[in-house]
Simulated assay, not measured.
Amino acid sequence: MFQYYCGLRSGVKPNPSSKRSSFAHKISRFLKCCIYFFMSCIVFHGIIVLYGAPLIESVLETFLFAVLLSTFTTLNCLCMLGPNIQAWIRVFSKNGAMSIWDNSLQITTMCSIVGAWLGAFPIPLDWDRPWQVWPISCSLGATFGYVAGLIIAPLWIYWNRKQLTYKSR
Rank of each mutant, 00 (worst) to 15 (best):
3 Q>M: 05
3 Q>H: 07
4 Y>D: 14
6 C>I: 00
6 C>V: 04
6 C>H: 00
7 G>R: 06
7 G>D: 07
10 S>M: 09
10 S>L: 13
11 G>F: 11
13 K>I: 12
16 P>R: 15
20 R>N: 15
22 S>Q: 06
22 S>V: 05
25 H>G: 04
27 I>A: 06
29 R>D: 14
30 F>R: 02
31 L>E: 04
31 L>P: 04
32 K>L: 15
32 K>I: 15
34 C>F: 08
35 I>R: 09
35 I>P: 12
36 Y>W: 14
36 Y>C: 14
37 F>A: 02
38 F>D: 14
38 F>G: 14
39 M>E: 04
40 S>M: 00
40 S>H: 01
40 S>C: 04
40 S>K: 03
41 C>H: 02
41 C>N: 06
42 I>A: 15
42 I>N: 14
43 V>A: 04
44 F>C: 14
45 H>N: 10
51 Y>L: 12
51 Y>K: 06
53 A>K: 00
54 P>I: 05
58 S>G: 01
61 E>W: 12
63 F>V: 12
64 L>T: 12
65 F>R: 05
68 L>D: 03
69 L>H: 09
71 T>M: 13
71 T>Q: 12
72 F>I: 06
73 T>R: 02
73 T>N: 01
74 T>R: 01
76 N>T: 09
76 N>Q: 09
77 C>Q: 03
77 C>V: 05
78 L>Y: 05
80 M>K: 06
80 M>L: 06
83 P>Q: 01
83 P>C: 00
85 I>H: 01
87 A>K: 10
91 V>K: 03
91 V>E: 00
92 F>S: 14
93 S>I: 03
93 S>W: 00
94 K>G: 06
95 N>H: 15
95 N>Q: 15
96 G>W: 03
97 A>Q: 00
98 M>P: 14
98 M>N: 15
98 M>W: 14
100 I>E: 12
102 D>P: 01
102 D>C: 02
105 L>D: 00
106 Q>H: 09
106 Q>W: 11
108 T>D: 00
109 T>K: 01
112 S>G: 05
113 I>H: 01
114 V>P: 07
116 A>D: 03
116 A>K: 03
118 L>A: 15
121 F>P: 13
122 P>V: 08
122 P>E: 05
126 D>T: 13
127 W>L: 09
127 W>K: 04
128 D>T: 09
129 R>L: 11
129 R>K: 08
130 P>L: 13
131 W>H: 09
135 P>G: 09
137 S>L: 02
140 L>W: 11
142 A>N: 10
142 A>P: 11
142 A>S: 15
144 F>R: 13
146 Y>S: 06
149 G>D: 14
149 G>W: 14
150 L>E: 06
152 I>Y: 13
153 A>G: 03
153 A>V: 00
154 P>G: 11
154 P>M: 08
156 W>H: 08
158 Y>K: 13
162 K>Q: 02
163 Q>G: 12
164 L>S: 05
165 T>Q: 07
165 T>M: 08
166 Y>V: 04
167 K>R: 10
167 K>V: 09
169 R>Q: 02
